[in-house]
Design a protein around this nucleic acid. Structure first.
Length: 584
DNA sequence: GCCGTTTTCGGCCCGACTGTTTTCAGTCG
């Protein structure tokens, strides 16, 4: 999949064009890049199959950009871009990442101080050459110095599993602070927005929105900048403040009056592309939409703004859940009342992948069962590692049989159904890590790859397909093997894997571990097109992990999945039909 | 450079914050 690579090239080209003060083109290039990044199919395959015409079917890609992409896919470079590169400093793309530096300032720094790279910029700061430049001052120079520091500390994104608890902590701290001293403030209307509310797998920075009358806004801002977690205060105003947390993450807080709360929530939740689409619809309908409300274009009269629901309704659209707001067709679907009925936390009836201290989990079988039952689940599958996973204390056949005995005896004391499962290693040749007579005794076999990540695409694809053709395997666990920010997905042909899975009626796992989220939203979307069903599983190694169901659920919702697509929303009686070997 | 039940040409989201150029440009989201 080279979408990310092609998008990166277009982003970089946009930066260079912007540096040259070229108008509009950078916007067009960025839009194309964004859409390619979010495009479900492999752009290289699209080009192979349908040629240039296939490329121009991607929104934002026209004749000219399609030609450039084709040239890039064929030759590895674009002649025109090579020429452009010479017209901007070599470090332009990286330097534009520095907060507060845009094209205009960059140009001045390059022209007057010959700053071409991050190192040049650092040196210029150190020798105080920037403060002497017209248009800059001591403060600008200091801000650039800090921005460089922040860039180097945390330009990588925050995983959802870290950002979400962090935002919840900040918000509850804020509420605690405000509870005393500001009566009349509606504390339920402090909420995280942005990519976090859309539950993207990683978050750039955390955005928080609060509702307050003007008189109370100052108090919220004061409470915010004095939170114990806050490190450096980047800016503080009446409606917006920005701090950098001690651990390096940026958090923005905005305060809006009640009549604008819905409009602001909509606006700051984004995505940017969704909002642009929505604003265009508003314009077409004779309205003007901003973060303050929906207004009539002619009279300027306010039409809506208190709630998001109201805004979407007035624009003739169904309410669009935050996870869908990526401009991937949700606006058109909403106009036709064809949005999916997204799977919801309340639909989940069980968890089909977890570990105990029989292998690498930290809790006993009994504790896991107890806690799963307390969560209201109808069933769980206990899936400790198979024997070849020595590093994870994989179980030999005897230990596995002991576990079955314990499950049987514990089952008498609990209401919840406990299924005998195993996370079985898919070996190098595609065979499974227990003999057939053991596999057929298991209620659920979760197959997984934990070795040989460097295999060729052909080898890995063959290995996984062989496993999918094995009648004993039920679920393919973390199908891509990626670890967020650490390890790329292994080389595998997902088209072929999904095809084989569909032919053999296998279930694709959506693994909830924050470092995995695997399948990711794009692959889920693709897999669904093959008619596949999914399970959302926590792969818990401890009791607290059981709560990470929400991260996988978020990815499922981002991929438009409905209850019906996900087998662990089925009642036990129906689950039995899916996993035929299940007995009572 | 892209796009079109307003348009094949003429638009392209728009308002807050910061710092500096003492009235506004640049940047961000």
């Amino acid at each position: 999949m080279r979408n990310r690579e092609v998008a990166e090239l277009l982003y970089e080209t946009a930066d260079i064009m912007e540096f040259q003060q070229i108008e509009w083109k950078p916007r067009a290039y960025r839009r194309a890049a964004q859409n390619i990044e979010n495009f479900g199919e492999d752009i290289e395959k699209v080009y192979e199959k349908k040629g240039k015409k296939g490329l121009t079917e991607i929104p934002g890609v026209g004749e000219s950009i399609a030609d450039h992409i084709a040239e890039y896919l064929k030759t590895g470079k674009v002649e025109k871009f090579e020429g452009l590169k010479g017209k901007a400093p070599s470090g332009t793309a990286e330097l534009m990442e520095i907060r507060g530096l845009g094209a205009k300032k960059m140009k001045k720094l390059a022209d007057k101080l010959e700053i071409k790279t991050m190192l040049d910029l650092k040196n210029a700061v150190k020798s105080h050459r920037i403060r002497r430049l017209s248009g800059f001052g001591v403060k600008s120079e200091e801000n650039i110095a800090r921005a460089i520091e922040n860039y180097e500390k945390s330009h990588s994104r925050i995983p959802l599993g870290k950002a979400l608890p962090l935002a919840e902590e900040i918000i509850s701290g804020l509420k605690e602070e405000l509870k005393n001293g500001t009566p009349g403030l509606d504390l339920s209307r402090i909420i995280y927005t942005g990519s976090l509310r859309r539950l993207k797998e990683t978050i750039g920075d955390i955005d928080i929105l609060a509702e307050a009358e003007e008189a109370d806004a100052g108090k919220i801002m004061d409470a915010f900048v004095s939170l114990p977690e806050a490190g450096q205060v980047v800016s503080k105003g009446r409606t917006r403040s920005s701090v950098i947390l001690k651990e390096g993450f940026a958090i923005d807080l905005r305060v809006v009056p009640p009549e604008s709360y819905g409009a602001a929530l909509q606006y700051f939740t984004g995505s940017k592309e969704h909002n642009i689409g929505l604003r265009n619809i508003a314009l077409r309908e004779g309205y003007k939409l901003s973060e303050y409300g929906l207004y009539s274009k002619n009279s300027g009269e306010r039409i809506a703004g208190k709630s998001e629901e109201e805004i979407y309704r007035k624009l003739g659209l169904e309410y669009i859940a935050p996870e869908l707001r990526e401009n991937r067709g949700e606006l058109k679907a909403a106009a036709k009342n064809e949005l999916p009925e997204l799977v919801d936390a309340g639909d989940i009836r069980g968890d089909l992948h977890m570990h105990t201290d029989y292998s690498e989990g930290t809790e006993s079988l009994e504790t896991m069962i107890e806690n799963a039952e307390a969560m209201g689940y109808e069933y769980i599958a206990v899936t400790d590692h198979s024997r070849s996973q020595r590093i994870a204390n994989g179980m030999d056949i005897e230990t596995l049989k002991e576990q079955w005995k314990e499950i049987k005896s514990l089952s008498k004391r609990f209401r919840i159904k406990v299924l005998r499962g195993s996370e079985v290693e898919i070996l190098k040749d595609g065979s499974l890590d227990y003999p057939d007579e053991i596999l057929k005794e298991l209620d659920i076999v979760v197959g997984a790859v934990h070795s040989g990540f460097a295999s060729s695409e052909r080898e890995m694809t063959g290995r996984i397909i062989t496993a999918l053709e094995n009648s004993h395997l039920d679920i393919l666990a973390h199908p891509s093997g990626r670890l967020l920010g650490k390890r790329e997905a292994y080389a595998v042909n997902f088209g072929k894997v999904f095809e084989a899975a569909a032919a053999n009626k296998k279930i694709m796992e959506i693994n909830c571990q924050p470092s995995r989220l695997d399948l990711n939203d794009e692959l889920i979307f693709r897999a669904k097109n093959y008619g596949l069903k999914f399970c959302i599983s926590t792969d818990s190694h401890s009791v607290s992990d059981l709560a990470s169901m929400r991260y996988g659920l978020g990815q499922a919702r981002r991929s438009w999945l409905e209850k019906e697509d996900i087998v662990n929303t089925y009642p036990y009686s129906r689950l039995k039909e899916v996993f035929k070997k299940l007995r009572d």
